Every structure is written in C-alpha cells, then in structure tokens.
Computed example of a mutant assay.
Amino acid sequence: MLMSKAAYAKHRGVSRQTVYDWIAKGDVVMSGSKIDVNASERKLKNSPAVHPWHDPDKKVNISPRAALYSKGEDLSDVKNQPFTVSVQEAANMVLTLDDIYPPAETEDELRDRVLDAAEALGLEVRTVDVDGDEEYIIGIELYDAKQDKTVHRFDSYLFELEALTFLRWLVVTKRLDDTELENVTKAGLAALSEPFVSNVKAVYADRFESDADEV
C-alpha cells in the first residue's frame, strides 16, 4: 500500500515534519514519491523500540531525553533527585520541555505538578479552606519558609493553574533572586512546561459540575 507523506503522517499520528525526518534518516521505505506502508511497517518492527508515549492532541513524539520526565514510567529516582543549575539553565530546561512533557489529565495530576514545582523552588504549598475545613479548599498559597512569608496566594476558581503560571513566570523570566538553584528536580522543572493540562473542563470536571448544580 502506498501513501502520500501527508496521509502517512495522519496514519501514524505524527506531524508531516516528523515524516520528513524519518525519510531523511531512512526510517521509511519510499516508492517514488510515495511511502510504501507495508515495507515501512516491516522495517519498523525490526528497528530498536522507542519510547511509546506521545501526545495524541499535539502529535509530538517524546524524545529519549524527555522520556526521563515522563509520568508514564517509574523513574522517580531520576526525576526527584535534587541537583544544582543556574537560573538560566533552569529557564532553558522548562522551555525545552514545552509541548513535550505530558500535560495533566486529571485534577490529581495537576496537584502533583504544583507540588513538584513548588518543592523544586524551595516553597511550600498551603491550602486555603473555608473555616479550616480541608474538604472545601478554595485556594492555595505559596509559602517561603526561609523568609517566613507568603510569596503569593491564589484563591480563584482555577488556583492551581494560576500558581503554575506564576511559578513558570518566575523561572522562565529569570526573576529568582538566587544565581543558582541548589535543590531543583527534573520533575519540578518539567511541571512548569506548557501546556499544564490536556483539557481544562476535563481536569476540573467536578468544579464545573458543582458550578452547574448551583445555577
């Protein structure tokens, strides 16, 4: 079976640029200007396995380097090992992972991103709740234990996303006071890559439902 490059890209769930890269590397079998799908599939089966994760919405295959940040594998020792980087290096790492690190698909995953990011920058996440009732959390605040002060408070409807946006802004625009970050983690920096969530309504399903019930 022969396919055009565009049709093969759609068939494989990747961008056309990815197909062009495969052609340049000889990873697919060409027949004139068309791709021989059957021959290419046989060749692929005999090739070394690649990391299976990809974002079906963005059609971006994860790179071997970015696989270290993937939530889909048990790489906690690697992702959570503290290390030291300059403020510039931290910014570069976050930007490199944009559209590569898998976004949160549930509210629990989104909370993990906030916790990972705050911890990497030496901050604590404290809940803001109604009369001390943790079942009714209405926001969070980022607390700096070293300076014994609240850095920022977020009590809007989407407070997790606002917190991540704020932390990303601090890192990417290099507004941190330290010239070096001594205890960052790969998970923490990856948590600041965009997009933060795959679908806002899906991640915040409970909040949208409760909001609808009140109407």
Rank of each mutant, 00 (worst) to 15 (best):
G132C: 05
E119V: 03
Q81N: 13
L121Y: 05
A118S: 12
D148F: 01
H152N: 11
G122Y: 03
P102W: 04
D129I: 01
V125W: 00
Q147N: 15
L115P: 00
L97I: 07
H152I: 05
K149A: 14
D131H: 07
D112Q: 13
F159E: 02
Q88W: 07
P103H: 10
D131I: 08
D129C: 10
E107C: 07
K79Q: 15
L164C: 06
T84I: 10
Q88I: 07
R126P: 03
F154R: 00
L123F: 11
T150F: 01
T150M: 00
L164W: 08
E141G: 11
S156C: 06
Q88E: 15
T127F: 06
N80S: 08
T96M: 12
V130Q: 10
A120I: 04
H152Q: 15
L158Y: 15
E124F: 12
D155A: 12
Y157G: 00
D77Q: 12
V128H: 01
K79N: 06
M93D: 09
R113H: 12
G122P: 08
D116Q: 15
A118D: 05
V130M: 13
E134R: 11
I140D: 04
E160H: 14
E119K: 15
I140F: 11
L158M: 09
L142G: 02
V125M: 02
G122R: 04
F159R: 05
Q147W: 06
A120F: 02
V125N: 03
V114Y: 00
V94L: 10
I138L: 10
D129E: 07
A118Q: 04
V78E: 13
F83L: 13
Q88C: 07
K149W: 04
P82H: 08
A118C: 02
R126L: 11
D112A: 09
E134Y: 07
T127K: 11
L115K: 10
V87F: 02
E135H: 09
T106D: 04
I137G: 08
D99E: 12
E162K: 11
E160N: 10
V128Y: 01
N92S: 14
E109K: 04
A118F: 06
R153L: 06
H152C: 05
D98W: 06
I140R: 05
Y101H: 14
A104D: 03
A104E: 03
M93R: 14
V85S: 01
Y101Q: 10
V125R: 01
A163I: 06
S156K: 08
V114N: 02
D155T: 08
P102E: 08
Q147L: 11
Y101S: 09
E162P: 06
H152S: 13
Y143S: 00
Y143E: 01
E105R: 11
A163D: 07
E162M: 12
V94S: 04
E135C: 03
D98L: 00
Y136Q: 13
L97K: 03
V78K: 08
P102D: 07
I138R: 12
L97S: 01
V78W: 13
D99C: 14
K79P: 01
G122L: 11
L97Y: 05
E124R: 14
G139R: 02
F83H: 11
P103G: 09
Q147T: 07
Y101K: 13
D98R: 12
Q147R: 14
S86M: 09
D133L: 03
P82D: 08
K79R: 15
R126S: 05
E134T: 13
